[in-house]
Design a protein around this nucleic acid. Structure first.
Length: 505
RNA sequence: GGUCUGUUCGUCUAACGGUUAGGACACCAGAUUUUCAUUCUGGUAAUAGGGGUUCGAUUCCCCUACGGACUACCA
């Protein structure tokens, strides 16, 4: 069966990384069945609307490689896909509910509701309290008509039937049973004429012929309300299948992963950079942090789902045929950024030198440093096994372009010996006029000058590296010399000898 | 508090009544690398607790404990 699924975020700010996972699971099911992935914007709360959020969502999904087939920005047979533009539709449907006695008008003020909630411990707007409130059930018919005629602000609430067991089948959790007496009379239509999530969601999913509702676990408690709505509308046969996804948890302790935790632990939580339109504050995204979309997808898909085999590395295309909601776990998954980094390293190393060189060239452009493609390729190959993020090619390869002016004192104290300097002196001279020096030559020249002094090359390597890079760790030294060239190598050795104090052996 | 829901190595998870409880990340150790990193090999490490059911429970049932979500005219 071709699945019609939707990702339906509300544009109230940046999309959380968990949202990407939800979108991903939807997308995988759509692709697997040859179905349709729909993007619907749930902007029914005018107070929480944040400009730019919708564009942000679209761009984030595009970055992640989650393509939308139908919806906002693309259009489709069930347009519009922005709920604020579908206001009249909800009005029409809620009228049907009123007419059939499944919903009613309520005139209670905020204070009335407050009072009701505080009157008894577990009070909610339900079969216990509704007759004490001001609504079309408790008020006389002519009172209701005159209030309505006078334009008194009101909401429309769902009339929960008594003594019913509501049963729903969740693809992930199995059977869920709830007593209707536990349910509250949810607001369906707000006093501003906008629907709430519950109404808009059910109406749209029905009209858009959605087959599977894959969403976060936070919706499970209100799912019985939705089931009731389908029943009241007479849409039970068309009711989509539900799949409530476990939440993404913070890496330490318990609780939902939040921006606070991410900040505290130094990793992003948003897919791409987000600039808060009010404060202008920028929250760094995974993209800008250097995470590759394919690494994120691979990491995220495994947070709550597994293929049942020992395969861990999956491209999007490999995921499509093997994904299944049946293999999604029930428990929340802690967000372990270390594993995400491992995936990033994996995908980074799988890339061609040309692709990696492009990252380096980008950074160099920002620094106004010129570099040939060949040289960038060489550097990137030398550094490839050492980086987690693309920008580290510049961070770790900086010394290829900028000669060290200071040297790590600890390394110097241990390795900058008089005998090493002696060898370095002659090495510098030997290498000075060999601009195109390859790894082999760099090595053999070093071996011969060291032999002349009766010193093993191993004893001067550390000093050589200090003079060239400023420190004692880095990519292969001979490779480094090849990239630097004879002239530059010589220059750096001379500078180091001039600058550094001697250490008596 | 109420409702719903969950619980296997530190983390992500496999094992849909019978396994020495498997894999991956992380961690530790060894090997390779004239540095570090990589790579390779090996290792530490888990069924929340208590009752049942059963010849046999990680697996099924109940209780307890501990989490989580929801409890808005927000989604």
């Amino acid at each position: 069966m071709k699945a019609r699924v939707r990702f339906a975020p509300s544009p109230t700010g940046a999309l959380h990384i968990g949202g990407i996972r939800t979108a991903l699971y939807n997308f995988l099911l759509a692709r697997q069945t040859g179905g349709t992935m729909i993007l619907r914007i749930e902007d029914t709360d005018q107070n929480r609307y944040v400009p730019g959020a919708e564009e942000y969502i679209v761009e984030s999904l595009a970055w992640a490689g989650i393509q939308i087939d139908e919806g906002v920005g693309i259009g489709g047979p069930y347009a519009p896909y922005r709920q604020s533009e579908r206001k009249h539709i909800y009005k029409e449907y809620v009228q049907k509910l009123i007419a059939s006695g499944k919903a009613y008008f309520a005139f209670d003020t905020e204070a009335d509701l407050e009072a009701m909630r505080h009157a008894t411990p577990n009070a909610q707007y339900d079969h216990v309290t509704r007759m004490q409130m001001k609504n079309s059930l408790s008020l006389a018919a002519d009172d209701v008509t005159s209030r309505l005629a006078a334009g008194e602000p009101h909401v429309i609430r769902l009339l929960i039937p008594e003594q019913q067991e509501i049963h729903l089948v969740d693809l992930i959790r199995g059977d869920v049973h709830v007593q209707s007496s536990q349910l509250d009379d949810k607001v369906l239509m707000k006093s501003d004429g906008m629907p709430t999530y519950h109404l808009a969601n059910v109406v749209d999913d029905y009209l858009m012929k959605i087959t599977h509702v894959i969403r976060g676990e936070e919706w499970l408690p209100s799912a019985p309300h939705h089931v009731l709505l389908y029943r009241f509308f007479g849409w039970e046969k068309e009711m989509p299948q539900f799949a409530h996804l476990p939440l993404l948890l913070k890496p330490d302790g318990n609780g939902k992963l939040s921006k606070r935790d991410a900040d505290r632990m130094g990793f992003p939580i948003f897919p791409i950079n987000w600039t808060d339109p009010k404060t202008g504050e920028v929250a760094k995204g995974f993209r800008e942090h250097g995470y590759l979309p394919e690494a994120m997808i691979n990491f995220l898909v495994l947070l709550g789902w597994n293929p049942g085999t020992e395969q861990e590395i999956f491209s999007m295309d490999e995921l499509i045929p093997v994904f299944s909601l049946e293999r999604v776990g029930k428990a929340g998954a802690k967000f372990d950024i270390k594993k995400a980094q491992w995936f990033n390293e994996h995908y980074l190393r799988a890339k061609s030198a040309e692709t990696l060189a492009a990252y380096l060239l980008d950074e160099l452009k920002k620094e106004n440093i010129l570099c040939t493609h060949e040289r960038a390729n060489q550097i990137v190959i030398a550094l490839k096994e050492r980086v987690t993020f693309p920008q580290e090619f510049w961070e770790q390869g900086k010394f290829f372009f900028i000669a060290p002016t200071t040297f790590d004192p600890g390394s110097v104290a241990k390795k900058w010996t008089t005998e090493a300097i002696e060898v370095l002196e002659s090495y510098q001279v030997a290498v000075e006029n060999v601009p195109a020096l390859n790894t082999e030559q760099a090595k053999s020249i070093l071996e011969s000058v060291a032999a002349e002094k009766g010193i093993k090359p191993g004893q001067v390597l550390a000093a050589l590296r200090i003079s060239l890079t400023g420190g004692t760790s880095g990519p292969d030294l001979m490779q480094t010399i090849e990239i630097l060239g004879g002239e530059e190598t010589s220059r750096r050795i001379q500078f180091a000898i001039k600058t550094l104090p001697l250490v008596k052996k």
